[in-house]
Design a protein around this nucleic acid. Structure first.
Length: 309
DNA sequence: GTCCAGGATTCAG
DNA sequence: CTGAATCATGGA
């Protein structure tokens, strides 16, 4: 087993303060599935072809990379939105009139959407249906371990579509994908001959991007919304999963609403950064710390959206 | 053993 | 079009 040789720890300059609790939630809260926390509290992960370790100390973030590899500082800065582009979007969310959102933001202040590689987001969320975050991490780790290209230090990249399309049935099955193996294989077979698929998808407006994603096997409305949000930076995308259904039902009184209706509510109520609001609500709900909306709070879209039109 | 998981697909009505 | 059944697997 090849053990990693790390560079010294160095500070990562972030515009926004990032508390340790928020930091952990950001890396391990169901956005990416490739970060693992070590016994010393630091985090080790792979994103794209970059291997890095991170740790939060006194409100600041430190990083280190593999000796001999290209410096991970630039990739990390982009990945973690070091320049603070999302801070203004949080400010523009309706937290002043929405006490539920305000309370959720205060639980994980500084929480941001990771700017992930499209392939990483798509593969991860192809594995996500009807699975818990811990189990998704296990699946993705197995895919990388068995088929990914070595990056040094014992770490591996995610396998590309060509490799996944050609993978033996027994290999895929050993990754504990279950029925999702057909999703991964089917999508891989469609994308393996389109090396520029990510650029082509990125050029599409969000509605067309969502449609293109949902044309892939195993990609429905929720997975497409997650890939658009985490992989293509579409901050207006509003994924509705079981946690968000419960959160909007209990906290906003939207009982019995169907996912499509809740998605419409989320995008109209939260606006251009609805996906960011969604992540705050998702994390708060998962932490069991979601509050309930007060009767005074105004909900501009506090009625069922029209099913047609 | 039972229930559920950051759902998607297929099928019946 | 909508709602229910089904899918494979592991952890609580």
């Amino acid at each position: 087993m090849e053990s990693p040789v790390w560079t010294p720890w160095r500070p990562l300059r972030l515009v926004d303060n990032l508390p340790a609790g928020t930091f952990a939630e950001q890396l391990d809260g169901g956005q990416s599935f490739r970060w693992n926390q070590l016994a010393d509290g630091s985090w080790v992960g792979v994103f794209g072809r970059t291997v890095a370790a991170l740790r939060a100390s006194a409100g600041c973030v430190e990083w280190r990379g593999l000796v001999g590899a290209t410096s991970a500082a630039g990739a990390l800065s982009d990945y973690l939105d070091a320049e603070g582009a999302q801070a203004g979007l949080v400010e523009a969310l309706p937290w002043r009139s929405d006490s539920v959102l305000r309370a959720a933001i205060e639980i994980y202040p500084g929480l941001r959407i990771l700017r992930q590689d499209p392939q990483e987001a798509l593969l991860g969320f192809l594995c996500s249906s009807n699975k818990r975050i811990l189990q998704i991490r296990t699946m993705v780790a197995a895919l990388a371990e068995k088929m990914g290209e070595p990056l040094g230090g014992g770490f591996r990249a995610l396998p590309d579509w060509r490799t996944l399309a050609a993978a033996e049935e027994t290999v895929l099955r050993a990754c504990a994908l279950g029925y999702r193996a057909a999703y991964v294989r089917g999508t891989a077979k469609q994308l393996q001959h389109r090396p520029d698929w990510a650029q082509e998808f990125q050029a599409l407006p969000t509605p067309e991007l969502m449609a293109a994603l949902q044309a892939l096997p195993g990609v429905g409305p929720k997975v497409a919304a997650c890939v658009a949000l985490f992989g293509f930076g579409r901050l207006e995308s509003f994924p509705v999963d079981t946690w968000v259904v419960q959160a909007l039902g209990t906290a906003y009184g939207l009982h019995g609403w169907k996912p499509a209706q809740l998605e419409q509510f989320g995008r109209t109520h939260f606006g251009p950064a609805a996906g960011l609001a969604q992540q705050y609500l998702f994390s708060a709900a998962r932490a069991g710390r979601l509050t309930t909306v007060s009767e005074k709070t105004e909900l501009p879209s506090g009625r069922h959206p029209k099913l047609r039109g």
